[in-house]
Amino acid sequence: MKTREEIFEILKAQFPDAVLGIDASLPTEPLISIDPLKIKDICVFLRDSEELKFDSLMLLSGVDDANGTKTKDEQGHDVITGGTLSVYYHLDSVYLKHRVTLKVSAPRENPDVESVSYVWRSADWHEREAFDLLGINFLNHPNLIRILMPYDWEGYPLRKDYKNPEFYLGMKVN
């Protein structure tokens, strides 16, 4: 069993470029920030390393940080430019009984994140959900299509500047 700070030190020694830092000031738990284009190698290491053995991805969730510049368009709707979209990974080791939370942040205009669905199969649908609702593009995902919304839906509903369409297939939405 290892604390999150110890896990961070192990990762930092192994991947000095890809591991960006640890935020220990949060009231909940420390977050380890990772480069979005190198997350897969780190996850393979976390899973296979003898001293870490993270065999379970409990949760993968997307978040719209909404930290760009906010402007209004002609109709008065919010438009956010710049900033980041984030993905959080909650990992658990059943063998060693320790946990860790990883975070990657990708630019809002081009949110590319490496898929970890080959590392933990549970990531497959979670990544599809993050793609469906936030538009995060998971590179090398085997089947990155919408999972909840209809396939022909436009836009990503959980983005903070999402604008609901007036009609969908002739049905009034609002």
């Binding site: 909840l148 509903p157 999402y162 939405v173």
Partner: peptide, 11 residues
């Protein structure tokens, strides 16, 4: 509710 039909009597 961005995904909910506001009353089934609309269809």
């Amino acid at each position: 509710g961005y995904h909910v039909l506001k009353g089934v009597d609309r269809v």
